[in-house]
């Protein structure tokens, strides 16, 4: 490696920090979308670095489906207290109670899709003009075409055919009243980059990323967690397994991995040997070939 060449992780970090500072400079009311998953935890870490020694100059927003892994919520509350940042919670249960959305019924019911309405309502209510998200382009084919600065109209919609060209690092955050931006500072990171960075920076993660015993059941090639609100088919039965989460979302759609990995190094080894993409275990993506594309157009994360 040349003397004046950054390593690829350092270069990705420098790029993400640049994007985060650009958000703070260009927008009046930015917010960071925090799911409790590893990507948003890395985003928070990068935000600390970007504004050091000052505090992170924007709040965190968690869209709470009510169907969470309890470990994620504990982790979230401790992180917020430690960093002294403001946390805003948008509740899907409230959206259901107020009639904004109707809960899905049946075996595959999930609150995943409902989150979009809660997210857009929360953005509008708080007048957020930029929502920083941890989406990566390597995750899914619709995401491969995302910009760093992704414009959303007043309905929160993404128009993939009509995106603004994005050149060099000149990000155009201009918008009309009522419109907002989604900003993705870690667009260029892969799953492996994220894990290597977590290892290199010693970033703390919720315990569900590491192996633990849990009651689970098997459906369509995916292990799902048994929970009171998870409706099971008569043929499905609960089993006790050693598992861990490869991605963390709402319980109803988070596929679990049979695993004994209990350190970051173990996880990296496991991912390196895996032959399935991380979203391959996401039940929400299995609904149709264009599932992510459709949700994104409507305003999903």
């Amino acid at each position: 490696m040349g003397h004046y060449q950054l390593t690829h992780l350092k270069e990705l970090e420098a790029e993400a920090i640049y994007v985060l500072r650009e958000v703070a400079a260009q927008f009046e009311r930015p917010v960071l979308l925090f799911s409790g998953g590893k990507d948003s935890i890395v985003l928070v870490h990068l935000s600390r670095k970007a504004f050091y020694p000052a505090r992170i100059p924007f709040p965190l927003l968690h869209i709470d489906t009510g169907h969470n892994f309890i470990e994620t919520i504990d982790f979230r509350d401790r992180l917020v207290a430690r960093l002294n940042v403001r946390l805003i919670v948008g509740s899907v249960q409230e959206s259901i109670d107020s009639g904004r959305v109707v809960e899905e019924k049946g075996i595959n019911a999930s609150r995943n899709v409902l989150q979009t309405v809660t997210l857009l309502d929360t953005i509008e209510k708080n007048k957020f003009d930029a929502a920083i998200g941890g989406a990566r382009r390597d995750e899914e084919k619709a995401r491969a075409k995302e910009r760093f600065f992704s414009h959303r109209d007043e309905f929160g919609q993404w128009d993939p055919k009509n995106q603004r060209p994005e050149l060099w690092y000149l990000f155009n955050g201009k918008k009309r009243l009522g419109e907002h931006f989604r900003v993705f500072p870690i667009s260029n990171w892969t799953e492996m980059d994220i894990w290597q960075y977590i290892l290199a920076e010693q970033i703390e993660l919720p315990s569900i990323y590491f192996t633990h015993e849990r009651d689970v059941f098997y459906r369509d090639g995916v292990w799902l967690a048994a929970a009171p609100f998870m409706q099971m088919k008569p043929t499905e039965k609960t089993e006790r397994k050693r598992i861990r989460c490869r991605t963390v979302g709402d319980i109803s759609c988070t596929g679990l991995t049979l695993s004994t990995a209990d350190t970051i190094e173990d996880i990296i080894q496991e991912i390196a040997a895996t032959r399935v993409t991380e979203r391959g275990g996401r039940y929400d993506d299995k609904r149709s070939e264009a599932a992510m594309e459709d949700r994104k157009k409507e305003g999903y994360f």
Partner: peptide
Amino acid sequence: TDGLRAEREQGITIDVAYRYFA
């Protein structure tokens, strides 16, 4: 490298897509 549904239908690429390998 197929991405969006409109592209699959028309058999063309509409927008810049980013891919990763190492």
